[in-house]
Write a protein that binds this DNA or RNA. Structure first.
Lengths: 111, 111
DNA sequence: AGGTCACTTTAGTCTTCACTTGACTTTTCG
DNA sequence: CGAAAAGTCAAGTGAAGACTAAAGTGACCT
């Protein structure tokens, strides 16, 4: 089974600007915890906590190389988010389709 | 110009489970504030505040009909979110392409 | 008019959570 | 070995924000 994350976990993780900045940075390529911390103006400890949240949401994977922890973007989390969004849109369209059908049966009308 | 919302505003709005529940409900069709409040187990005032946040993020539109406020899903916000996600993925792929190119030039290698 | 319904507003409470500090571990290098 | 670099852990602090109660507004009904 493909490792999935609950939409809730993913959106909770993305609901913080610092974590979104981390994801944006990692979409450009792997980075160490310190490299992530540098432009953010927060401590290493803070970044580490964010990375852990992102890992739980499967938005990030990490791997320890020597004394450095290398962080990478994980597509799984983004895929979970995209799927949730598309589901909301699909429902919406289904609804609009039904509406169009009713209006079609009753003759031309504007909302 | 098409009305757009900043990704930050949208993800901040979706970073709350109650608001996600509201969006999920509205993707099934329009609803009044009370109809939204009912299954959530929170007060009307709380829902109203959530709806206002969702409006700012362009995830929801509302319209007052008599004494009832009708809430509807707004695609704009979802579109903003989807675009942000796709950008992150596009960057990621671009990165992987560059990597593949380098590996290709240097002969077959595993990471 | 008077009452009820569906919000709306305000002010305050309470919890969550981002962030920090400081101590500690592990790895690297001269 | 011994010091610096990179990260880790555990409390503790503070501010944002989710929620509530209560009073107020406007629409609808009889």
């Amino acid at each position: 089974m493909l490792q999935r994350s609950a939409p809730g976990t993913v959106f909770d993780a993305l609901g913080d600007s610092t974590r979104r900045a981390i994801v944006e940075r990692l979409s450009l390529g792997p980075a160490s915890v310190s490299a992530l911390a540098d432009p953010l103006g927060v401590t290493l400890a803070a970044v580490l906590q964010h990375v852990q949240v992102l890992e739980r949401a499967r938005l990030v994977t990490t791997e320890k190389q020597g004394r450095v922890r290398v962080c990478r973007l994980d597509e799984s989390g983004l895929e979970t988010a995209r799927r949730w969004i598309d589901e909301r849109r699909r429902e919406q369209e289904r609804k609009l389709d039904r509406l169009a059908q009713v209006l079609g049966e009753e003759g031309s009308r504007e909302e």
